[in-house]
């Protein structure tokens, strides 16, 4: 009895050590980035010889970086909105129309953009948008990022809808709710956490996408990954780390919001 208990403790310990090591492996590079952002010298080295906030000052003083940040957020929000609308409607449509022929095609079709290398997508879109005369605008970046983000929102929503009790739609229709009323008053409130998570996912995808942005952006619409790449080619200074730190921070806030959104109702139920 005691020996089995002992063995269980040992196994638990080994397991803990294992996943802590894995966790450390994932987090350490991020730590290096954050730490180097506080370097005082102009050389990107780890650990830095001395610490200061001088590069943060540089960042806030540099209009190019601030503009890139603004661009990233504009494109990110645009992508999040467009991809969420498309992904949610696509998943919903397929769910309520799943035995029709169109429904069975949508699933694999939505995946396609993920299977095409971003370089090819970027070049193709560049030619296409030039033809349309909207080259270099935010719209092109948002559309390109939406190509990538929509499948992810779509798959998140498929799994959310698979847990939705579809009889509620019958009940709503039965009580006099038309299709749009049903969607607004019954479907959306039930899946709002999923919608929120899908939207955040789309935002993060857009925030860190580089290849298509490189092809499609101009000096006035360039996003953070694009500017970072241009800068690194010229000089490898801690500015890159500062920008990365902000990106990490952004993603963490987004993640926290997502966790909060999914658990908010649970939390409020616990409190009341």
């Amino acid at each position: 009895m005691t020996s089995t208990l002992h063995r269980e403790t040992l196994e638990t310990l080994a397991f803990r050590a294992g996943y802590l090591a894995l966790f450390a492996l994932l987090v350490l590079p991020l730590l290096v980035v954050v730490v180097t952002s506080f370097a005082a010298s102009g050389r990107l080295a780890f650990p830095p010889e001395s610490y200061s906030l001088v590069w943060y000052g540089e960042f806030f003083g540099d209009l190019r970086w601030l503009t890139a940040f603004e661009n990233s957020i504009i494109v990110g929000v645009g992508t999040a909105i467009l991809a969420t609308v498309l992904g949610v409607l696509g998943a919903f449509g397929q769910e309520i129309d799943d035995d029709s022929r169109i429904g069975s095609i949508v699933g694999p079709l939505v995946l396609l953009p993920l299977l095409i290398p971003p370089v090819i997508l970027g070049i193709t879109l560049l030619m296409y948008f030039s033809e349309l005369g909207i080259r270099g605008s935010y719209v092109t970046l948002v559309l390109a990022h939406t190509l990538w983000a929509t499948p992810l929102v779509y798959f998140v929503m498929r799994s959310v809808f698979s847990r939705f009790d579809w009889q509620q739609l019958d009940a709503a229709a039965d009580l006099g709710a038309g299709p749009i009323q049903s969607f607004v008053h019954v479907v959306l409130p039930n899946v709002k956490q999923g919608v929120f998570v899908g939207g955040l996912l789309a935002f993060i995808i857009s925030l860190q996408e580089f290849v298509m942005a490189l092809f499609l952006s101009t000096a006035s619409t360039e996003t953070i990954p694009v500017l970072a790449w241009t800068e690194i080619r010229q000089a490898l200074d801690p500015m890159v780390s500062v920008v990365s730190t902000f990106l990490i921070l952004f993603s963490l806030v987004a993640l926290a919001l997502a966790v909060l959104a999914t658990n908010l109702e649970w939390v409020s139920r616990q409190l009341s």
């Binding site: 009790d165 009889q167 509620q168 019958d170 009940a171 709503a172 039965d174 009580l175 019954v186 039930n190």
Partner: peptide
Amino acid sequence: STVFQDWALFP
């Protein structure tokens, strides 16, 4: 108006 087998109340 229908009363459903598992009631289908809006959660």
